[in-house]
Design a protein around this nucleic acid. Structure first.
Lengths: 263, 263
DNA sequence: CGCACAATTGAAATTAATCAAACGATGTGG
DNA sequence: CCACATCGTTTGATTAATTTCAATTGTGCG
């Protein structure tokens, strides 16, 4: 299932060829790739690029489609009755957005572009037709995908309540690193497209704390953080930090907090 | 949809008649009630009662069935790679257990009885057959149910990261109160079947902190807490506490943290 | 260039965790 | 039936972590 290190390169990210994409572990994605393979016309529409700050959809919008991130990045955000906001995830290319809206028929959170980005749109009605045609496949896939999200939500829950702030940030950075790796980009040097404020909100910390933590991780020689540019110097050390064990990382790569867990 | 205050009474809880049960907003439940109404034989089996401490299933167990709580109460619990445990929810009669296992084919957490309890078992294969026969109905229902859980998980996430410990406990107690209300039991006086330790773990706090918080809420005249017995004296005040506003509750009943959100 | 916003830094205050101990209920075996 | 061990709960004192307040610096953008 995992095609990591298989040597297949994705030269043009705009070309949706999930067949060779290792992020397809997010199984619903196959809907997109299969539709392309089977030449199902009109299933997927390509929208025009979005600018930073633009919303793909707002909380309360009618749910009509699922979205696949083609380029750029997004954050999803949830506002409760008291007006309090919670960043629920960050999303990069190949991530699927909009599933949250299936239940109430309306999106339960908003999704906003963090930079110039583009998506593909899959009308849910069409998805349903496809899934009814190939029931044993897609029917299960969707459930799997959503169910899998619950599993990740669990993990996130634990991460946010059981570990200290420093570990949270380390976990968060490792998760992004992991997701970059899955996208065949460098897991050691990448862009952090979101604001410190978003990271703080997501991790349940004060902005000042996040800022201080970046500094501390830097002082310990684990990372070099300059604004939206991150360089992971000592990934093993960062792992140790994330798990609470200072020396000797016991956890395999890819076991940390998932920033894309809910959304 | 909501049958609250409709005057219909559920005299025998052992008789599964979700038709008249207001907790059927948890829509998957209809599978149980419909199956009974349609006389689908063998769909639901009634297991023998479980004792306190017994596990309905363990983390890693093969996923085969969904369960409906008939009586008693349960806690669900998740153990991560490092051995750290996180209580992910508490479950009372009419709650559905086991959905978490759909994706990986194995249960991602364990469920344990908090007292003498009983459940009904719905083999998932049978559920699938039913759902294929009546596709537009049940197919959507399951997705709705799981998707709805995500929505609640969101809320829980926010509750655990954005608000103070005192508010968390207040929120937690109000959620149980709400769930008692939905079950047509008194929302002001009820049993707290779980240990303080479980509450602490669930809320991401130390046991000592939880104990002190109970005391503080009591000193403020909001509750009377004795062991596993809880009496809510000032529910409006408790709401104010939960939302952070000390005076003047702005939030409608039923908007607080859901202790059954994940699982 | 300067404005507005984002990020950093420092100091003080607050919250919750930890350490340590006592208390209470429950259950067991003598 | 009572002493005893055990587990869960409560309480107190102390420590550590994180927030809050306040001020400064840095950055992007018109």
């Amino acid at each position: 299932m995992k095609l990591i290190n298989s040597g297949i390169s994705v030269s043009n990210i705009d070309k949706i060829s999930c067949r060779h994409c290792q992020t397809r572990k997010s199984c619903l994605m196959r809907v997109f790739s299969d539709s392309e393979a089977n030449n199902v016309e009109g299933l997927v529409t390509h929208e025009k690029p979005m600018r930073k700050g633009q919303n793909l959809f707002l909380q309360g919008d009618k749910f009509q489609s699922l979205y696949l991130v083609r380029s750029g990045s997004f954050k999803s955000c949830f506002t409760d009755e008291t007006g309090e906001r919670q960043v629920t995830g960050f999303h990069f290319s190949h991530d699927i957005l909009g599933i949250d809206g299936i239940d109430p028929g309306r999106h339960i959170r908003e999704v906003e572009a963090l930079e110039t980005s583009s998506v593909c749109t899959l009308p849910f009605q069409l998805f349903k037709e496809v899934s009814l045609r190939d029931n044993r496949g897609l029917y299960d896939e969707l459930i799997c995908n959503v169910s899998g999200m619950m599993s990740k939500a669990n993990h996130l829950l634990m991460t946010l309540t059981k570990i200290r702030a420093e570990q949270r940030l380390a976990s968060f950075l490792l998760d992004i690193s992991q997701s970059m790796y899955e996208r065949r980009q460098s897991p050691y040097e990448f862009k952090l497209p979101m604001a410190r404020y978003d990271i703080a909100n997501y991790l349940g910390l004060a902005v000042e704390t996040v800022s201080r933590l970046f500094k501390r991780l830097e002082e310990q020689g684990l990372i070099v953080a300059q604004r939206h540019r991150l360089h992971i110097v000592d990934i093993d050390g960062l792992h140790s930090m994330a798990t609470g064990a200072y020396l000797g990382s016991k956890v395999g790569y890819g076991e940390q907090l998932s920033c894309r867990s809910i959304g």
